[in-house]
Design a protein around this nucleic acid. Sequence first.
DNA 1: CCCTTATGTAAGCATGCGCTTACAATGCTA
DNA 2: TAGCATTGTAAGCGCATGCTTACATAAGGG
Lengths: 209, 209
Amino acid sequence: MDTSEHTRHQDRPGDGPVTENAPPRPRDAQGTRARILHAAGAVFAERGYEAATVREIAGRAEVNQALIFRYFGSKQALLTEVMAQGGKEQLINTPAERLFETALRGVLTKGGKPGTDRLLAVYLRSIGSADAAPETVRALGEEYAAALAALSSADDSTLRAQLAMAWLLGIGLMRVVVGQEPLASAEPDEICGHVLTALEGLLSEDGRE
Amino acid sequence: MDTSEHTRHQDRPGDGPVTENAPPRPRDAQGTRARILHAAGAVFAERGYEAATVREIAGRAEVNQALIFRYFGSKQALLTEVMAQGGKEQLINTPAERLFETALRGVLTKGGKPGTDRLLAVYLRSIGSADAAPETVRALGEEYAAALAALSSADDSTLRAQLAMAWLLGIGLMRVVVGQEPLASAEPDEICGHVLTALEGLLSEDGRE
DNA sequence: CCCTTATGTAAGCATGCGCTTACAATGCTA
DNA sequence: TAGCATTGTAAGCGCATGCTTACATAAGGG
């Protein structure tokens, strides 16, 4: 399946005189690790966990395939590492009452910070297949929900917070993975307005079910 | 990976005297097709498209693997067929103003009709990998959204309807795939109450942004 | 300078996958 | 009963995958 452009650009080991165009890159373990992580994030986001291949990640990072296993051990562990990077920063640096809007805008903004929506894409595209993905999503989601839950004094505040998180994920799914129009191209402000208005009662009100 | 119980029960072609325990099942193309479809639905829902194997589907349906390709042509086509079955019935048989609640309850009810939440699981678990899945989800979602959009006279009524659909999908994702607590075990009535209350303005109000 | 360690490389192993093929059994029709 | 299309079966082909191994090359301390 999809036997098209796979052997696009490996590395060039003995491709010619390595004089000016590509100096034989100094050995740099950290740099290599970082390039692998970056490439892995991109490929996982585009293809999903199962469809992404170690060979493509290695190719895009311009790195020998074996190094991926030397540095990360397995494809699964690589996915976990990708998901772990930059997961909780937002959670820590944002006050609770602005947390939901910040996260929502992170989902809605496409080209903002390159890591944000891509990480979400990795989550969403890998949920169905990898064993590690649901675990990671659940763990992260629980922390978000716990922070959100503190805003409401209702006795089921955690449930309310998780419902909000579910909406966030669903919107991301529709935009990033499914690409449903007009949702996918709608203005962040417009969506934000609708969602925040609708959720106002859910998150801030006291428990008056 | 996971080399555990795979060769569980093939068929027994010459396993011994076929006398009473397993009569050599009369030839029945329709029945075989149906058994394959049923098994495929289960396996796709549990494993996701990529991780599901034709061999496991055949094994669970107690059917020779080659028959799957005779009847459906390819694994992709089988997935499409699984998704196509029972997709739009609800859409046709439900009046628009009760459509969302009905669909939501379909998502929330676990053991109700065995096909409902399983179909959603197939959708969600296969979205990331299969090419056909996002297409199908988008098409179905657009029909739902169009029906819902008729309820609101706002100029962005389609967007509002899709936001509602996104919430529905997100809740399903959290419950069926991720299994986040307490959402996963919460009472349908409670979730329904929260969601419908929050969406009241979004879906019925006139456009007063 | 050599020797050890860290880094990078080439080649391939073992396996499970989707799918095909060649063939046997069954039932229908003439 | 003979002929034929339909249904079921056994075996395996070709291939891409995750991962491993055996080996080159660079850096750095003695």
